[in-house]
Simulated assay, not measured.
Amino acid sequence: MHLAQLNVGRLVAPEGDPRVADFYAALDEINALAEASPGFVWRMVDGESNNATTLRPYETDPDMLVNMSVWESRDALFDYVYRSGHMDYVRRRREFFLPMREAITVLWWVPEGTTPDLHDAMKRLDYLRENGPTPYAFTFRQYFEPEAPGSVL
């Protein structure tokens, strides 16, 4: 099994605004860092660029961005997020994104070779927000091991 992750964030300003210029300028570097990280498997891109910034999980919210990726393990994802150059941008998230009261990140297991679907990922985030962490949708803090082979996730 591999670990899928989805995170969302509402920008403080639209692309092109100086307040988010550093965020957009760093995307290629941070994406390359992810792809070079041990345990990286896949990340979502929009097909027109090397990132997913044109994809919108909510049609009515043009400032909400989405990011999704797959990793070999929780440790591999954790190391990339919190123990690499990516952490410099995690520390700066309040410069680029508005605070949100609800969960912005969801994790779940997918069979190796599976590419997660954005619609399914958003359902898992909604489920996490409504029900809390379960094996279906969880967080780094409240984590679940993969289900036994043959079980339904």
Rank of each mutant, 00 (worst) to 15 (best):
F78M: 12
S84Q: 13
V106H: 03
P38N: 04
V70P: 09
R93Y: 07
L65Q: 05
L27C: 04
V20N: 01
D117K: 10
V12G: 01
V66T: 09
S49N: 06
G85P: 06
P18T: 09
V90D: 07
L65S: 07
L128D: 00
W71S: 06
V8E: 01
P111Y: 01
R74G: 00
E147K: 13
L6V: 03
F78K: 12
N67V: 01
E29G: 06
T115R: 15
P116G: 10
H119T: 11
Y127M: 06
Q142G: 05
D117F: 13
N67D: 00
A121E: 01
N7R: 06
L55R: 12
M87P: 01
F138C: 11
A21T: 04
M68R: 09
L118T: 02
P14E: 09
R74H: 13
L55Y: 09
R94D: 15
G85L: 12
E130R: 14
R141Q: 12
R92Q: 01
P146R: 05
M44W: 03
W108H: 15
A76G: 00
A148K: 11
R43T: 08
K123S: 12
L27P: 00
P133A: 15
Q142P: 00
Y136A: 12
I30C: 02
Y127C: 03
N131F: 12
F23N: 00
E59Y: 14
E29Q: 10
Y127F: 15
L65D: 07
T105M: 10
S84A: 11
P62I: 10
P133E: 09
P62D: 14
V12T: 10
S73F: 12
F78T: 10
D117S: 13
D79Y: 08
D46V: 12
L107Y: 06
Y58G: 05
E145G: 08
Y82V: 10
R129T: 11
Q5M: 13
A21L: 13
R83S: 13
T54G: 09
G47T: 05
G16W: 00
P135R: 11
D17Y: 07
F23P: 01
R101Y: 11
T134I: 03
N67A: 05
D63G: 01
P38G: 08
K123R: 14
Y136L: 10
E29M: 07
L107V: 02
Y58Q: 14
V20F: 02
R94H: 15
P149D: 08
A76P: 04
M100R: 14
T134Q: 08
D79W: 08
I104L: 11
G47S: 05
A36Q: 14
Y24F: 12
M1S: 07
E112Q: 14
R74K: 15
N131S: 10
Y136D: 09
V152R: 15
M100N: 07
E95I: 01
S84H: 12
N50K: 04
G85Y: 10
M87D: 13
F138P: 09
I30G: 05
L27Q: 03
G39N: 02
H119N: 02
M44P: 07
P133F: 03
D117Y: 11
T105K: 03
E102T: 13
F138K: 07
S73V: 09
P111L: 00
L33R: 02
T60N: 15
F40Q: 07
T60V: 13
D88C: 02
G16L: 08
H86N: 09
P38A: 06
L33W: 05
E48I: 00
A4Q: 03
T53Q: 12
N51Y: 08
P111S: 04
T114M: 14
P116K: 05
E102W: 14
A121W: 04
T114L: 11
